[in-house]
Write a protein that binds this DNA or RNA. Structure first.
Lengths: 203, 203
DNA sequence: GCGCTACTTGACACTCAGTGACAACTTGCG
DNA sequence: CGCAAGTTGTCACTGAGTGTCAAGTAGCGC
């Protein structure tokens, strides 16, 4: 879903270089920290020129955070695909299950990336900026689902609460907690459910 | 509160230069946009050298976002000062009332700064990073207030929900809405209240 | 197979952000 | 008056990010 099949050899080569760059970047950053690694080092480790790095990624943060963009589209698509009668709390839990499943899937790599992002101010800032985009998209999809009028604060609030639950689960999973991110998310969503599914919503 | 009285002349001069820099920065950015303004231009407009700019502010973003740091301390202090028996939704509403009041107070300037922040990706990222710090502090203060055990997700969730309400009110106030930020916040907090004040909290 | 177009790459040069070091100046205090 | 502390300007440097141009290679029609 996030990796459309590469038909051309040119496109496959391009993807290969991108993958080489992210792998080199993550390996170096895991060892020395985000700030200590220069783009020259990343490019050299991947066997390309510095200029080529910027043809694949817009910035040093981007090479770590890029995949979040595609994930945002998947999240919103998942929400839109949920049955119309489903309560918002359940639909949102399924939507945010997409990135959580990605964490639970690639355990070692995911923990490394999450730890790097949450532990680096510059990366955390970019991460939150992406989440802000997720919130806008989720709110739009929710408003579409529920047919709310424009002035209503509920869609954006619901999206924000769901992302708060996601964030809290992610933080807890990252520092110390050996729990599964899914069960942490379930606990977090149980807290916000009373607000998401308040009775007078349909009135 | 955010501006301790300057005793020394040296300190007063320093504050004056800082104020001159922020005013020059905001004036230039309001005209040409954040990215188009260089630090050389800001320093020149304030009548100081480029190096001096960096002795007052750590980065170009910092000159716009600095005041948020002091505000974070005020917010947490306000929360801690609320009566112990007060429900979390009310206490948090009062705490987040601090920055909202700052908006309602300096109308023209506040709208300018908020519009600049919400409309500039780099500034939005820094803004959200600061809010993430607010969330940590608020969660710690809440855990202290309620005497929750370490594994409990509630304090961080409650802080996140309150900040979601704050953010939503701020966004709505910024684009279009001529409402008072306070009443927007009241509407937003009414949505999250059922989750914040769930009955089995004290059990 | 030949040639043309499109795409990617490397190399060079440039602007701007941010930092370290040093000398000159001013304030605060004895 | 004289000294310690703090602020400022200048110079020099690293690193991020961008524009431009020439060279090389895949894709495709002839």
């Amino acid at each position: 879903m996030t990796t459309p099949p590469a038909t051309n050899l040119t496109q496959r080569m391009r993807r290969l270089v991108s993958a080489e760059l992210t792998e080199a970047a993550l390996r170096l950053m895991a060892a020395d920290g985000f700030d200590a690694v220069t783009i020259d080092q990343i490019a050299a480790a991947a066997g390309v020129s510095r200029r080529t790095f910027f043809r694949h990624y817009a910035s040093k943060e981007d090479v770590v955070v890029r995949f979040l963009t595609d994930m945002g589209a998947d999240i919103t698509a998942t929400l839109s695909a949920r049955p119309a009668g489903e309560p918002p709390s359940v639909a949102l839990r399924h939507a945010l299950g997409v990135p959580l499943a990605a964490c639970a899937g690639a355990h070692e790599r995911a923990r490394q990336v999450v730890g790097l992002i949450l532990g680096t101010p510059a990366l955390l800032a970019r991460f939150l900026e992406r989440q802000s985009q997720w919130q806008d998209d989720l709110a739009a999809a929710l408003a579409e689902r529920l047919g709310t009028e424009d002035g209503d604060l509920y869609p954006r609030m619901a999206a924000g609460m769901a992302l708060t639950a996601f964030d809290t689960a992610l933080h807890r999973w990252n520092d110390g907690g050996h729990d599964d991110p899914g069960v942490l998310a379930d606990r977090a969503f149980a807290i916000i459910a009373p607000a998401l599914d308040a009775v007078e919503r349909t009135a």
